[in-house]
């Protein structure tokens, strides 16, 4: 499938006016895309743990059922944790959305083709794993509808967004994992100071 969408523009549109959205960014370009959209204490960016992004999203979505949780990841990262789609399907969290930025490449290691370049369809896998809302986005005019669904539609949702195989300039999130954890928990869990 020939893609025309730019990953940075898609992620910037999906994270615009994000409200109280909680975000997990899969390692590599997806994390850089989220950082380019604006570093945020409620974005947890993975620098390792390949294959774990969706499971982290599941844990977070089940822990905070009144918040919307978005996992932004790549096709290679998703393929490494394919079992997570089955595990999410069994738990069925209505507040979880997974967006796979699918450039059909391992972008960080030399643009080698992933299985999706050979026709493996991650949206179809998610549908078979009981995700209630799945789609493949190829056009810019479909992005606002995806943003709406991430915030409003009952999930679990998985959208494959076909993006160009390009490497935009690096924009890096903090790389200290303990710091990322502490600031996320601080922003999410700390009670506001009582007003006197």
């Amino acid at each position: 499938m020939s893609a025309s969408l730019h990953r940075r523009e898609v992620v910037a549109a999906l994270l615009a006016e994000r409200g109280d959205l909680l975000v997990v960014a899969g390692l590599g370009a997806s994390a850089w895309d989220c950082a380019a959209a604006g570093d945020h204490p409620l974005t947890f960016s993975l620098w390792g743990g390949m294959g774990q992004a969706t499971m982290m999203g599941l844990g977070l979505a089940c822990a905070r059922p009144r918040r919307r949780v978005l996992v932004v990841t790549g096709d290679g990262e998703m393929l490494m944790g394919l079992g997570a789609l089955a595990t999410v399907g069994v738990q069925g969290p209505a507040n979880l959305a997974v967006v796979v930025l699918d450039n059909e490449r391992y972008g960080e290691t030399g643009m080698q083709p992933t299985h999706t370049a050979h026709g493996v369809d991650l949206a179809a896998v998610a549908k078979a794993c009981r995700f209630v809302r799945t789609s493949t986005v190829t056009r810019e005019d479909e992005v606002p509808g995806l943003r709406w669904a991430i915030h409003e539609a009952p999930g679990p949702l998985l959208a494959v967004v076909k993006v160009l195989a390009e490497s935009p300039p690096l924009v890096l999130p903090p790389r200290d994992g303990a710091l990322l954890k502490e600031r996320f928990r601080g922003a999410l869990l700390q009670q506001p100071a009582p007003s006197s």
Binding site: L22, V24, F44, G49, G51, Q52, A53, T54, M55, M56, G57, L58, G59, L60, A61, C62, A63, R64, G81, G83, A84, A86, T87, V90, Q91, K181, F184, R185, L188, L189
Partner: peptide, 20 residues
């Protein structure tokens, strides 16, 4: 939460702890 592979438990535990 039944898992397909044990490593899923590490990510699940981490995400859950982010949420308390």
């Amino acid at each position: 939460v039944p898992l397909t592979s044990e490593e899923e438990g590490v990510g699940l535990t981490a995400g859950a702890w982010l949420g308390g």
